[in-house]
């Protein structure tokens, strides 16, 4: 008959019989302990990611179940962070899943006293029309001396340090091609 370690209920016996004399190894597992598992082991997938806060670039693992984020943990494989996250990095789960996140576009009319919700597509159309109007109204073709300007000082942009490289690239590409030059971000602080 095969000897079953777990049937030896008295821990000291388990320790001796399994050779785990210090009781710090397998012998310390009760049946219940052995059946416990991390909540994260139920994840459908683990998606590799990077902390969105400071510039250190700690590795993150995003645990997803039923298309919802269950948790975000430090990535032990990262040679930068070796599994660590600081208080902010550890709060990333709340940053991305918290109730503070607005999910609707808000609009405030000129001289208005309140926000109004408007559909995303309408808001995009409205912004595009305003960009065209401002650009056309403030276009400068050349200086008094005939040097080329081909620009507008009527529209400006701020932000980029919290965004992806690909996003910064499209912002720079589109806005520069519109003739905008006042494009700035947090690096100027």
């Amino acid at each position: 008959m095969k000897f079953d370690l777990n049937k030896l209920v008295w821990p000291a016996l388990r320790q001796v019989s399994s050779g785990d004399v210090a009781g710090l190894g397998k012998a310390s597992f009760s049946k219940r302990t052995a059946s416990l598992k991390s909540r994260l082991s139920d994840a459908d997938r683990v998606v590799p990611s990077v902390c969105p806060y400071c510039g250190v670039g700690c590795g993150q693992e995003v645990y997803v179940k039923d298309e919802k984020i269950m948790d975000i943990e430090g990535d032990y494989a990262s040679p930068i962070s070796r599994g660590c996250l600081c208080p902010k990095g550890s709060a990333t789960m709340q940053l991305v899943t918290g109730t503070h996140r607005h999910q609707k576009v808000l609009y405030r009319r000129p001289y208005g006293t309140k926000w109004e919700e408007i559909p995303l597509q309408d808001a995009m159309d409205m912004v595009a029309v305003r960009v065209k109007k401002a650009r056309d109204a403030t276009w400068e073709d050349q200086t008094g001396k005939g040097h080329p300007l081909r620009r507008t000082l009527g529209i400006a942009h701020l932000g980029g340090a919290t965004l992806d490289n690909e996003e910064n690239y499209l912002i720079k590409k589109l806005f520069t091609s519109l003739g905008m030059v006042q494009i700035e971000n947090q690096a100027r602080i």
Binding site: P48, S49, V50, G57, I72, R101, R108, L120, A123, N165
Partner: peptide, 30 residues
């Protein structure tokens, strides 16, 4: 006139960050 657009989080889009040591790291959309 003010427009507020809610943004995606880094967990909701693919893209790369460049960290302080010039290292590009890709974060995957979850």
């Amino acid at each position: 006139e003010v427009f507020f657009f809610p943004c995606s989080a880094h967990t909701e889009k693919d893209g790369s960050f460049t960290n302080t040591q010039r290292l590009l790291q890709w974060h995957h959309k979850a």
